[in-house]
């Protein structure tokens, strides 16, 4: 008797219960249920509610009515909204580029044979494991108008006469929050890329050096091409994290001065919760979705698995 006929037997003759017990699909659904409930309850529902709120004029304390695209039409003419879009894009682009360059550099250093290598690797992770609010508070002090340690040091060195107005000047404030974000984001990039570097066999580097490649050419022709798939994934995540950043800005500047550091996320919160305009806040948050989708699609199509990674016959 073959195995297929033995499994078919009880299905034909069994009760509904035994058929259910023997069904792989039913079992699969049962096993997936907890995760599905979790996803629906904590991801799909809030997302759906957010999208729905964006089409209503809901305020705190008052159920809203459906008003179609009115919120979006209003935002189209809102200078502050467009400023926040500009800020978010600038913040994301500059911070991501800096995180990539510095993170890759750090990863390459950590991949060399260094004394106390594991110690340094652990240290590098520190900015990432510290809660964002905590490091943001630390930066708040570093950037303080009066007590900034940076200003103090530079003044003691005689390089400047008055404290630097880190968070009070629009340009300084933007640079300051970007610097804080970069500091916090480097470990993720560096450690992920380090993991990627360690998957490149040493013999490839050796073969390249026997083939006459200088260290720079080894990086350019061997390391970098082999690292691109990981760079794509890491930078997609990094861009998403940066684009949706909220905590750092909210602790450091709350969007000021004069909205110069307002990101879409902070503006959405500002309008929605303290401002009470839940509908408008939701609309701002929903406006982030196209940008995020664009980032994901860019990495998906632009940096998807290369031909050389695909196995098997052609």
């Amino acid at each position: 008797m073959t195995s297929s006929s033995t499994t078919a037997e009880p299905e034909r003759s069994g009760t509904i219960l035994s058929r259910f017990n023997n069904s792989r699909n039913a079992l699969g659904i049962i096993f997936m249920l907890p995760a599905a409930i979790f996803l629906i309850g904590f991801l799909t529902y809030p997302l759906g509610l957010g999208v729905w709120l964006g089409f209503t004029d809901t305020r705190i304390g008052r159920a809203g009515d459906f008003i179609g695209l009115e919120n979006y039409a209003y935002l189209m003419d809102d200078q502050v909204f467009w400023l926040s879009v500009f800020n978010t894009v600038v913040y994301t682009v500059i911070a991501s580029i800096l995180k990539f360059v510095l993170g890759l550099w750090l990863a390459l250093i950590l991949n060399e044979k260094l004394p106390y290598k594991s110690f340094f690797r652990a240290i590098v992770l520190l900015p990432w494991v510290v809660p964002t609010v905590l490091s943001a508070l630390a930066f708040w002090w570093i950037y303080d108008a009066q007590f900034s340690i940076l200003s103090w040091s530079l003044m003691k060195l005689g390089l400047i006469d008055t404290p630097i107005n880190f968070l009070g000047d629009p340009l300084n404030a933007r640079l300051s929050v970007i610097a804080a974000n970069v500091w916090r984001g480097i470990p993720f990039v560096a450690i992920s890329l380090l993991a990627g570097l360690q998957t490149i066999p040493v013999s490839l580097q050796e073969a390249a050096s026997l083939d006459g490649a200088t260290p720079w050419k080894r990086f350019r022709y061997v390391t970098l091409p082999m690292l691109t798939p990981i760079i794509a994934v890491v930078m997609t995540f990094s861009v998403l994290f940066t684009f949706t950043d909220f905590q750092l800005i909210y602790v450091l500047t709350k969007g000021g001065p004069v909205n110069a550091t307002h990101l879409m996320a902070t503006l959405s919160f500002q309008r929605g919760i303290p401002g009470g305009q839940l509908g408008e806040g939701a609309a701002i948050a929903v406006s982030m979705i196209p940008f995020l989708l664009a980032a994901i699609l860019f990495s998906f199509f632009g940096l998807q698995r290369r031909k050389w990674q695909q196995g098997g016959q052609d």
Binding site: P201, L204, E206, A207, L210, V222, P225, R306, W308
Partner: peptide
Amino acid sequence: MVFQNYALYPH
């Protein structure tokens, strides 16, 4: 040199 694992550049 020919390496044990060939060390061909996969890309």
